[in-house]
Write a protein that binds this DNA or RNA. Structure first.
Lengths: 158, 158
DNA sequence: AGCGGATGCTCAGCATGCTGAGTATTCTGA
DNA sequence: TCAGAATACTCAGCATGCTGAGCATCCGCT
């Protein structure tokens, strides 16, 4: 009776925020020795397919360009990515992996890519259903990322 | 085919972090006019039952004492809560609602307490199951919050 | 009584979010 | 052609997380 956690009363948003924080901390703890953060790791993974503009990265991760810019600057300073000005559009700065960045990405993909799922399994959670709920939530909350029903280029109010 | 979001490939931790960020932003947008943040609102709700020490608040919210201390300082500066030194233990600073804080809490409880659930319903998510998954996740990740199986005072390694 | 550890909180500093404002480049249309 | 809008990004500043370090108070034990 001292402090039973009455999380049953918590609003769902609070549960979500708390769970996300705990998971992210767990990731960060695992990644610390490699010198990157969870956010940094996501950037590395996102640029693994070749040069990407910052705006695209920002949209992909659902963060602002300012935020992604700073995270990239950090990754650049640690030598994991390289930025170059797009000659075809000199406003753009494309981001790509360096050799050390690629090595690092391979390493962390190895030992712990699905860290969260391990925890979820331990918590006896139906992972596909949980993922589906999260995806639906993201889709619903993000007006910008409308699903391409046909050949519609996301013109409307993008 | 320009940019269909392949969220199906995302690690679950990334889905979770993204969903949490979007939900929190939605809350903050709603709360901005009232002059509090999501974090602040949770503090207000947590102290609505009477004076609480900062350490307890930190444990309740799964954040550090430093973080909660700063958030409380903020709420204090805006006049929503009051801090006082516990005469029985002068290290402790207990936090309680002021009249304006109580008013604000009542207001925001009114129009939007279950904001996330509305979104989840729109996203056609099984809310009880979703909540259950989040609770299980939190319970699994947080070694400190052991559930009181009997009359055990959380002595062990708390 | 008083030493030492535990406890409750603060300060300093960093990373990641955000908003608002500003710069540079490109595109559009008269 | 060239002015204005749109685009891509940066800088400045704030809030919330975190870690590490430090201070004051309390408790336990000799």
């Amino acid at each position: 009776m001292t402090r039973q956690p009455d999380r049953g009363q918590w609003p769902t948003g609070r549960l979500l925020a708390t769970a996300a924080r705990l998971v992210e901390q767990s990731w960060n703890a695992r990644l610390r020795e490699h010198g990157v953060s969870h956010a940094g790791m996501i950037v590395l993974a996102s640029v693994s397919g070749g040069p990407v503009g910052q705006r695209e990265l920002a949209r992909d991760q659902h963060v602002t360009e300012q935020t992604i810019g700073r995270t990239i600057a950090h990754l650049e300073s640690t030598g994991h990515v390289r930025r170059s000005t797009d000659p075809a559009d000199r406003r753009r700065r494309t981001v790509e992996l360096t050799a050390p960045g690629a090595t690092l990405l391979a390493e962390i993909s190895d030992h712990g890519e699905r860290l969260t799922d391990d925890i979820l399994r331990a918590a006896v959670v139906d992972i596909p259903q949980f993922r589906h709920a999260l995806e639906a939530l993201i889709r619903t909350m993000d007006p910008g990322a409308l699903q391409p029903s046909s050949g519609i280029t996301e013109s409307s109010e993008d």
